[in-house]
Design a protein around this nucleic acid. Sequence first.
DNA 1: TTGATATATCGAAAATCGACGATACATGAA
DNA 2: TTCATGTATCGTCGATTTTCGATATATCAA
Lengths: 97, 97
Amino acid sequence: MDRTEILKALAHPARLEILNQLKDPHTHFPTQEHPLELGVCASQFERCGLSQSTVSAHLGTLHRAGLVTTKRIGQWIFYKRNEETIAEFLATLQKEL
Amino acid sequence: MDRTEILKALAHPARLEILNQLKDPHTHFPTQEHPLELGVCASQFERCGLSQSTVSAHLGTLHRAGLVTTKRIGQWIFYKRNEETIAEFLATLQKEL
DNA sequence: TTGATATATCGAAAATCGACGATACATGAA
DNA sequence: TTCATGTATCGTCGATTTTCGATATATCAA
């Protein structure tokens, strides 16, 4: 867990919002055809006005920071919050900030 | 308290270290001539190898984010952690991240 | 195999950041 | 007022970030 890497990943409104919406997929992504238990697939995040490639870049940043996990099923990639890393990050920040 | 502004301010190792050193001035700044109860004046942070103008810029970023407070006394400006804002930020992050 | 769909990657443009030295500003001392 | 000191700001440069459209890759369906 790289604290600075995580802080950089969090320091962008779009990525903060992605993480926030992933907390409650049923309210934010009611239109997804696949069961939300699998996660949320990338294209769902394009509603916020960003292009497909930009969304993909943001998801990549979150993934490299360890804040989300991915699971490929067929042609889709499902994203979920990585609660373990997030909790560890918050605990570290509480202690060391 | 602007959460993204704070996250951006924290997303740099030098600024994280400044905040960390301000937690215990007596260990990190034993050479300061002024009483450490006033705070730590900017020039003390130049030891980490950064120029005066760079240190000033980092302190400015921390100050604009509300993470430190300043008090001018004579020609010196003393910096302290803003524990209220830091605590509020941590609490918000716990809830909303 | 071909076509459709989901996602990632590439290349470029614009914006922001991080660093520096030089300079300006503020304060106190002489 | 003049000088010295502490800090902020300016101008610049290189690196990184953010965004996009275009293209590549991966998978499934027909």
